[in-house]
Amino acid sequence: MSERSPSPGPTRTVDSTGVVSVVPAGVGYEVDADRRRRVISESPAHVVRCFAEIWAARELLFMLVVRDIKVRYRATTLGILWAFITPLLTIIIYSLFFGVLGRMGTEGVPYPVFLFAALLIWGYFDSSVSRASNALISSGALVSRVYFPRQVLPVANVISPLVDLFFGLLILLAMLLIYRIVPGTAILLLPAYFLLAMAGAIGVGLAASVLNGLYRDVRHFMPVLMRLWFFSSPIIYPVELVPEAWRPLYAVNPMVTVCGGFRSALLGTPPPTVVMIGISTAVTAALLVGGVLIFRSHEETVTDFI
């Protein structure tokens, strides 16, 4: 699909009645039955094209994100307040169970802020992946009636939770003030950890969304996977809980570096080692590329199942 653009330059046609129609250059596409088999052999081109198409459809992406955000808080009485209430309640509950009752080690930081520094970015990752995995199915009517680059749907669902992340950051700032914690220069690495989380979410979200269309089993499996992922990431417990020798293996889960990284950047706890960052980054890159390729090889077939 649109692998090669069949018209190199604009085609200008004048028909018998003198009507002029100009077809712009590079517009159009070719489809053939064998395209799917070529996704792997032409994978670098597919990864580039996948994101080029998103860029070309950025207005659509923007509109979908805006729709998502508007719809989420419209028709609720408390509206945008929910963006504050949900994380606050979560902090209280988790702090009670794991901090007060569980006496979890916190690398010398008060438990609520220790928890929330990691929970914040995990929450973003979790809701991105969960929403993205349903993106194609829940827009089934749209997908089966009008063509647009399909990857826009899951990707929009990775962008719209940024609103909640933003409000979460406000809460976190307030907590830092309350606990009189001043982040050091490590905070400069915060965007890098965030990008790691976002890239991972896009990769997993793309794959999950298209597999969810083909096998509805994914819908049942995703919540379990995310819960497992939650407990295998240092959110309610510190990284120190895992013996040092095992940490490189531990970092195969990129959320280990992301959550640990967020904590170190904001609270000054020990940062992830270079080895861990390297491993996590490599795994994230693999997730991203793998997600794109899985998505590309099934995106045309999946519409028959939605």
Partner: peptide, 23 residues
């Protein structure tokens, strides 16, 4: 198929222009 909403099982299709579908 022409609107790219489903994949052909066989054959080839080339479209040289923007498509608007009123399906």
């Amino acid at each position: 198929i022409i609107a790219r909403l489903t994949r052909p099982t066989a054959g080839r299709l080339a479209v040289r222009g923007r498509i608007g579908s009123m399906l």
